[in-house]
């Protein structure tokens, strides 16, 4: 067993993880916006006619 390791500051790795965090936030906001914009149209397309029938 290699023992416990205290994480050391590494700007390149921090940038890598920060990029993933940023991507996740952008995707949450972006897909949320797209859902509001195109959701009703897509539902209509998928089930045909009035989507709010359910």
């Amino acid at each position: 067993m290699a023992g416990l390791e205290i994480p050391t500051w590494d700007p390149e790795t921090a940038l890598l993880i920060g990029t993933i965090l940023l991507e996740a936030i952008v995707l949450y906001v972006g897909y949320g916006g797209l859902e509001r914009l195109f959701g009703p149209y897509l539902m209509k397309l998928l089930i045909g006619g009035e989507a709010n029938a359910r």
Binding site: E5, P7, D10, T13, L16, I20, E23, A24, Y28, Y31
Partner: peptide
């Protein structure tokens, strides 16, 4: 972060996976 320090995180894998999974 710990895996990333050892070169274990490949953004070429993670970014497209996340794009699809979100």
């Amino acid at each position: 972060y710990l895996y990333g320090q050892g070169g274990g995180v490949d953004l070429g894998i993670v970014a497209p996976l996340l794009f699809g999974s979100a």
